[in-house]
């Protein structure tokens, strides 16, 4: 088991840290969230999503004005798409969309670009901090779940996941399994076995 740190715990100087999960008090650094030490890296176990440029998000259209579409990302920051006259999407309240983070303005508003409508699927919400694990290194985890379940899966860094088609129930339970065991090693292999076992059961 790797070492789990809690808020206020000292972080050794040789640990690589994620800028959003520690603070420095003079010469020492301390954790601000539940974290795990993984091969000399500080990885958050709990915590909020801090948007970065280029990250994919999944959200729901909350308000449509003349030039601005407000999107609910289930996050404390407001998120908007600034419509351009060339945009051909007719946004309606309640539409599920996928988009990309362009920038965060003034620590208060996320500007989204490249929106795409997602239709006839299910929304699943997990803690945003678990998302990197659900994606996996070079997309391995989500690709694996997708290929076993034949579901189309779009993962938002904000913690919302869109699933459509295939064995959706199995896709949901596989994703929830990754979220619950995100801190454990050997997860890709474990999820593979889980999916194989479940599919075997249903085929019999």
């Amino acid at each position: 088991m790797n070492t789990i740190l809690i808020p206020g715990d000292l972080i050794e100087t040789d640990v690589a840290r994620n800028r959003n999960y520690y603070f420095t008090d003079g010469s020492n650094s301390y954790c601000t969230s539940m974290c795990i030490l993984n091969n000399g890296r500080l990885v958050p176990l709990e915590g909020l999503w801090y948007p970065n440029e280029g990250e994919t998000v999944v959200g729901v259209v909350k308000e449509v004005k003349n030039s601005i579409v407000e999107v609910d990302l289930s996050h404390f920051l407001r998120a908007i798409i600034i419509k351009s006259p060339r945009d051909r999407i007719a946004f309606r309240i309640g539409d599920i969309i996928e988009a990309s983070v362009k920038q965060v303005e003034d620590k208060k508003t996320i500007i989204l670009i490249f929106p795409r409508l997602l239709k006839n699927g299910q929304l699943l919400q997990v803690k945003a901090v678990k998302i990197p694990r659900i994606i996996g290194k070079n997309n391995t985890m989500v690709a694996q779940i997708s290929s076993f379940t034949k579901s189309n899966i779009v993962i938002g860094y904000n913690g919302l996941i869109y699933i459509r088609g295939g064995d959706m129930a199995l896709a949901v339970s596989a994703i929830l399994k990754v979220a619950a065991e995100a801190h454990k090693p050997g997860l890709t292999e474990g999820v593979k076995k889980f999916l194989e076992r479940e599919l075997e059961v249903t085929e019999k």
Binding site: G59, V60, D72, I93, G94, I96, N120, Q122, L123, Q125
Partner: peptide
Amino acid sequence: YHMNAINLAKANYIKELLNRDMREDS
């Protein structure tokens, strides 16, 4: 908060499922 957009999206999905006599938790 004039509405919870995420619940609205989930709601649409629930209606879709019920048309096939299904529920989210099977």
